[in-house]
């Protein structure tokens, strides 16, 4: 984990309000697993004051680049979208524990379920799994077809089902509806997206290993300020809580309570 002024090599809009940001630096060498995130100081001053947590969407160790995909929402991500190629961006990372790769073997099948801005970290995960000889199936939900991003990139790695709320893609509904219809044969499921989506997966798909990436408002993002904690499901757990930033953001289904 380091704090580095990384060089912006790309920061472009790839879908309405969705940006793809690529930065270059030594931090890339330290990334251990897909699903880890970085904490970004989007401006040099106090507006905004706090950093913003964004998942690592893909890495290129040869060029020492990492790519982030973010949605412009409030002041922080808006400011980030205005930073240009050639600028330096102060980034702390890599942070947290990501998706485990050693829970699945070569030749087996993984299902990757993403919702909206939860889709990005699944891309590096899918690349890593594919490299290990694991078959990947992607079920990705967006509001409309226009909001979709990275469809081609995912399709290159494995079967990709795009689900939209309004039915502008082939599948209308939620990723949960799609999973029910598809009735996939798989060994491990990985997911990232809005909490209601994660809760529905936990309800219906906990019979096999299921790993969920959580989101919570953070202060320090290194485990010191206790802002992003959630309760453990196990009431006898010694600590009774986990920190999303440093124990997570990825947890095995059943480890923490999602209502947090």
């Amino acid at each position: 984990m380091i704090n580095e002024k990384m060089l912006i090599t790309k920061n472009t809009c790839i879908a309405p309000k969705i940006y793809e940001l690529t930065v270059q630096g030594d931090l890339v060498d330290l990334i251990r697993e897909p699903g880890q995130f970085v904490h970004i100081k989007v401006s040099d001053g106090t507006l905004p004051l706090l950093r913003r947590p964004i998942s690592i969407a893909s890495i290129n160790r040869n060029t020492k680049e990492l790519t982030l995909i973010y949605r412009v929402d409030g002041v922080g991500t808006k400011t980030l979208s205005l930073r240009s190629q050639g600028d330096r961006l102060e980034i702390l990372g890599p942070l947290g524990h990501g998706f485990p790769l050693d829970v699945i073997n070569q030749g087996e099948t993984a299902v990757l379920v993403g919702g909206g801005i939860g889709v990005p970290p699944l891309y590096e995960l899918s690349k890593s799994l594919s490299k290990k000889g694991i078959k990947v199936i992607h079920v990705l939900g967006f509001r409309t077809l226009e909001d979709t991003f990275y469809q081609k990139q995912f399709e290159e790695l494995g079967k990709t089902v795009i689900v939209t709320d309004d039915g502008s893609s082939k599948f209308k509904g939620t990723v949960i509806d799609a999973l029910q219809l598809l009735n996939l044969n798989y060994q491990v499921m990985y997911a990232c997206g809005p909490t209601p989506m994660l809760a529905a997966l936990e309800n219906g798909y906990s019979d096999k290993p299921l790993y969920l990436s959580l989101e919570e408002r953070m202060g320090c993002a290194v485990g010191a300020c206790m802002a992003c904690v959630c309760h453990t499901v196990d009431e006898d757990d010694e600590k009774g809580y986990r920190k999303v930033c440093s124990d997570g953001p990825v947890f095995k289904s059943g480890e923490v309570k999602l209502s947090c």
């Binding site: 507006l47 802002a227 992003c228 959630c230 309760h231 009774g240």
Partner: peptide, 17 residues
């Protein structure tokens, strides 16, 4: 254990916790 989350919110040049 502390309070339910969200436990922090950003403000202009500051934060609430």
């Amino acid at each position: 254990f502390g309070n339910p989350t969200p436990r922090v919110a950003e403000t202009t040049a500051g934060m609430l916790n």
